[in-house]
């Protein structure tokens, strides 16, 4: 059992979460997407491509 607010028992390296670079084909927004179905954070379009 962990102690709430206590030391971290598992150290997960920050580079574990690696977003892929995407560009929205509708509004041109560039963003780092994670997950299987990236969605543009600006216009909510799923018409995006890896940049």
């Amino acid at each position: 059992m962990c102690t709430v607010g206590g030391p971290v028992d598992i150290d997960i390296p920050p580079d574990r979460v690696q977003g892929k670079d995407y560009r929205c084909n509708e509004c041109g927004e560039r963003f780092k997407g994670i997950g299987k179905k990236p969605i543009c954070p600006s216009c909510q379009s799923d018409d995006v491509a890896m940049a």
Binding site: G33, G35, K37, P38, D46
Partner: peptide, 19 residues
């Protein structure tokens, strides 16, 4: 409903597609 969820860290911003 589906949307793009932004996750803000000190270093960067990530967007997760939520279904």
């Amino acid at each position: 409903s589906r949307f793009g969820l932004c996750i803000e860290t000190c270093e960067d911003e990530y967007c997760q597609g939520v279904e």
